[in-house]
Structures are given as structure tokens and as C-alpha cells.
């Protein structure tokens, strides 16, 4: 059965993955850019944090450095796309592929164990007034709350509006004096920074980093974004940010439930692909249904 303990663990992971989903939202929805760099930058965040931690770096600093490692990966993809005019998809694939080697170099081997090391979670647990049982949950929640708020605030700043307009109508925002190349690079950097940050959290919870932990991350991210949008809606930026965070958590619960029902862990990626496929097809099904139903009101987005 689905015990409370499993539910809590799922919620913890869901919150951590929601950080990655926020990153995917920035590229996929805000910039209108399907960025495959995510597969490599997630692992990169985990690898960077893990290596730094076992070599004695303060875990909080290691986590922060993981974020910046991710932004650098995003900058590379952005430069491939904007300066060398390589398609969005191929730019991401190039960085992702390069990162596979780079991540192995960073780690020096295929996986690193963080058993019995100090992590941000052990640090947080040892703070006064923190119940050790809920430390991971609480820290993940606080992190997602702060990052979600920051993304929301950023998307309403002058630069944030320019970023959104770049994804909406490049010609228009360029004629308003915005360098859209810079905007794309910025968006990709922030996105991959968040993804790597998420990777460093997951590594510290699972107590290992693995060279292949990012595989399938982009499709999981897309599935989460879509699930959140369908269930919660996107009528405003605030709503969309909440939607994608919830989407990330709900996605983890769906995975946990099907695993409980006896599905093999190795079948998960197939399942995720099917979820994304259904989600991508369903808006057109929905519009066909509303077209048949004359009393059906058209919802804004």
C-alpha cells in the first residue's frame, strides 16, 4: 500500500524536481524553446555538488556552485543557437552530448556516493527547532517557495517582460530595442541553472550522483509542465508558476503510484512519453469536444 512514509518521500522528491520543472517552464513556455540541455545540466548539478561535497566544500556553497555550472551549460546552448545559427533542438543536443563526457570528467567515475557525508539536509536537520523527520520536506518546500516567487517576480520585471516577449514575438520586441539573442541566452542560462540546482538537491537526498541520472529529464519536465497547466491553468504568470510547480509534484506521485502498482522502474520512461503524448494531443481533443458542445464556454487559455 501507499504508506505515509512513501508519500512523504514522494512529496520531497516532487518538490525538488519542481525546481527543474520551473527551469523547463522558462525555456519551453516562456521562450518557446524546447531545450534538451536539461538532460545534461541536471546531471551536471548533481555531479558538481557531489564532488565538491566529498572534497570538503560547504554543501550550501556546493549547491550554489551547481546552479552556476548549470547556467554556463545554458549559455553554451544559447551561443550555439544565436551566434552560430544552429537550430534550437540541435544546440541542446550538442551541449547535452558534450556534458555527458564533461560530467564523467567532473566525477572521475560513473557514480559518487554521499553516504555519511554532510549535506544541506544534515545541516538543516541540526538547526534548533527543526524536526529531523521533516527536515528534508521543509527545506525543499522553502526552496521551491522562494524560487517560485523569484521566477514570478523576475517575469514581471522590465527584463522579464522582454524575455517573455522574445518567446512571443521576436520581431516586435527587437523593434523595441531588445537584443533577443541576449534574452535567449539569459533564459537558457537561468533555466539550466535551476535544473542543475534541482539535480544537486536530488543527489543530496538520494545520497549519490550518477552519470545517467539526467536521462529522460526533459520529457519528465515537459510532462510536469503540461499536467500542471491542464489542471491549474495559465491565465496569469502567477498562476502558471504555481501550475508548473504543482505539475512537478503531481508527476512524481503518478510515477510513485504506478511503481506501487507493480510497474518496473525501467518502464517509467515509456510511461512518461505516453503521458506527454496524451497531454500534447489532448488540447486538440478538448477543442473538438467544446466545438461539438454549443453551450460550452471557451476558457481563456
Amino acid at each position: 500500500m501507499f504508506s505515509l512514509k512513501i508519500a512523504q518521500g514522494t512529496l520531497e522528491l516532487g518538490l525538488m524536481y519542481a525546481i527543474m520543472v520551473l527551469g523547463v517552464y522558462l525555456t519551453f513556455r516562456v521562450l518557446n524553446y524546447a531545450d534538451l540541455t536539461v538532460e545534461g545540466s541536471f546531471t551536471m548539478g548533481a555531479a558538481t555538488a557531489a564532488v565538491l561535497i566529498i572534497n570538503g566544500t560547504n554543501p550550501w556553497l556546493a549547491t550554489l556552485i551547481a546552479f552556476f555550472a548549470g547556467t554556463i551549460a545554458g549559455v553554451f546552448t544559447g551561443i550555439f543557437h544565436t551566434k552560430f545559427k544552429i537550430t534550437a533542438l540541435l544546440s541542446g543536443i550538442l551541449t547535452m552530448t558534450a556534458l555527458y563526457s564533461i560530467n564523467l570528467r567532473i566525477m572521475g567515475k560513473a557514480n559518487i556516493s554521499l553516504l555519511k557525508t554532510r549535506t544541506i539536509f544534515t545541516d538543516f536537520q541540526s538547526l534548533p527547532f527543526i524536526n529531523a523527520d521533516y527536515a528534508i520536506l521543509l527545506l525543499s518546500f522553502i526552496t521551491v517557495f522562494i524560487l517560485g516567487l523569484l521566477v514570478y517576480l523576475f517575469l514581471n520585471t522590465e527584463i522579464g517582460l522582454a524575455l517573455r516577449a522574445t518567446g512571443d514575438n521576436e520581431l516586435m520586441i527587437r523593434s523595441q530595442g531588445v537584443n533577443t539573442d541576449i534574452m535567449k541566452i539569459l533564459g537558457l542560462a537561468l533555466s539550466n541553472g535551476l535544473v542543475a540546482f534541482s539535480g544537486s538537491y536530488v543527489a543530496q537526498k538520494q545520497l549519490f550522483a550518477d552519470a545517467s541520472m539526467g536521462i529522460g529529464m526533459i520529457v519528465a519536465g515537459l510532462a510536469s509542465v503540461i499536467i500542471g497547466e491542464v489542471l491549474i491553468g495559465t491565465s496569469s504568470i502567477g498562476r502558471a508558476v504555481i501550475a508548473v510547480i504543482c505539475g512537478g509534484i503531481i508527476y512524481r506521485f503518478i510515477i510513485a503510484i504506478v511503481l506501487q502498482l507493480g510497474l518496473e522502474a525501467t518502464d517509467l520512461k515509456l510511461l512518461t512519453a505516453i503521458i506527454v503524448l496524451i497531454a500534447l494531443v489532448s488540447p486538440s481533443i478538448k477543442s473538438k469536444v467544446t466545438a461539438l458542445n454549443p453551450s460550452g464556454k471557451v476558457r481563456e487559455e
Partner: peptide
Amino acid sequence: SGTAASMTIEENLIMALKRGKKRSLRWA
């Protein structure tokens, strides 16, 4: 071609008000 469709009227106008100027991290 002259407006960002997914953004609101006021958001489009604020972007135009900043035409050719430096954009900051201030709430728009």
C-alpha cells in the same frame, strides 16, 4: 506583428515605453 499576443495590453505598452532604453530588474 506589432504586439505580443500572449501578453496584456498594459504589458505591451510598458515594453513600448522602454523602447530603446535600458531595461532593469525593476517591477515593470
